[in-house]
């Protein structure tokens, strides 16, 4: 098994775990934990392809990861602020209780 296969497998499992967390959790903050796992799975692939996918003098893999990390930080900040606001309305961070628009 070559190293790129190992890291791609790891990243696929990481992504599936993230998806599982997003779908199974009802606590809004823990859903965010799942999203972070999925983002990291994607980042891992970028670095793995940069490292083993042939010469990449333009460093586009690492640069993409750099931007992706910045976006992840922004996403976490905004997401948590929204969760805090929702918490103030419903006194809970359970996603199932945010159903006031439910017909």
């Amino acid at each position: 098994m070559n190293p790129i296969a190992i890291s791609l497998t790891a990243s696929a499992i990481l992504f599936a775990l993230g998806l599982f967390a997003v779908l199974s959790r009802r606590n809004a903050i823990l859903v965010l934990v799942g999203i972070e796992l999925m983002l990291n799975a994607a980042n891992l692939n970028f670095i793995a392809f940069w490292r083993w996918g042939g010469a990449d003098a333009a460093l586009s893999g690492p640069l993409f990861v750099l931007f992706s990390i910045a976006i992840a930080a922004a996403e976490a900040a905004v997401g948590l602020a929204i969760i805090l606001m929702a918490f103030r309305h419903t006194r809970s961070n359970d996603l199932n209780r945010l159903d006031s628009l439910h017909g």
């Binding site: 696929a12 499992i13 992504f15 599936a16 775990l17 998806l19 599982f20 997003v22 779908l23 199974s24």
Partner: peptide, 9 residues
């Protein structure tokens, strides 16, 4: 959740 993520994996 497992039913969704396993096929994806």
């Amino acid at each position: 959740a497992l039913a969704c993520s396993l096929p994806l994996l």
